[in-house]
């Protein structure tokens, strides 16, 4: 999880079932990115919780950090990408196998709860994504192996 101001950009590489969620204030040119791995912190089996990994804890912490860096609560918007299902399986352990779509749903639920509108998304499918966000333009570029670069 990290927060940047222009002219810096923020990126994360090789998102599969994980979701990259960007929260930003375009006028203030500040943006934060969290790399969400699991939908809920109740999944954690460890006493030391890494809040950046779980949708329910990461989105809230991300919003707090963006506000601390100058973002205004009411001006915040969100873009997200990721949540793919990299491998197709028909057998056992379906819960873990459907983790991508569940991550997406959990991130959206948190954004709704915090009243942050989602202005664009590129989620699902079965391919990995590398994403980069520019807080100055508000553009999220998404690179995939088969479809090249796409901007949302």
């Amino acid at each position: 999880m990290n927060v940047v101001k222009s002219p810096n950009v923020i990126r994360t590489s090789g998102l599969g079932s994980c979701v990259g969620v960007v929260v930003y204030d375009l006028a203030r040119e500040v943006a934060g990115l969290a790399h969400v791995m699991l939908p809920d912190s109740s999944f954690a089996k460890s006493s030391e919780l890494n809040i950046a990994k779980y949708a329910d804890t990461a989105v809230e912490a991300l919003v707090e950090r963006v506000i601390k860096e100058g973002g205004r609560k009411n001006a915040l918007k969100a873009k997200l990408a990721g949540g793919a299902q990299m491998f197709q399986f028909t057998t056992a352990n379906l819960d873990i196998m459907r983790i991508g779509p569940r991550n997406v749903e959990a991130v959206k639920q948190q954004l709704r709860r915090l009243n942050i509108p989602i202005v664009a998304e590129d989620v699902g499918g079965s391919n990995g994504r590398t994403i980069e966000f520019n807080p100055e333009t508000g553009v999220l570029s998404i690179r995939t192996v088969n479809q090249g670069v796409q901007e949302i």
């Binding site: 590489s13 599969g16 999944f43 089996k45 793919a84 873990i96 391919n127 990995g128 192996v145």
Partner: peptide, 27 residues
């Protein structure tokens, strides 16, 4: 073993899948 699945993609996206279970106990 399960039936194997194949993917041609970014390493991060592929490995992430195998790390889900581990990520529940640590990093």
């Amino acid at each position: 073993p399960s039936v194997p699945a194949l993917s041609v993609d970014m390493i991060g996206a592929i490995l992430e899948y195998g790390l889900i279970e581990l990520s529940r106990v640590g990093d």
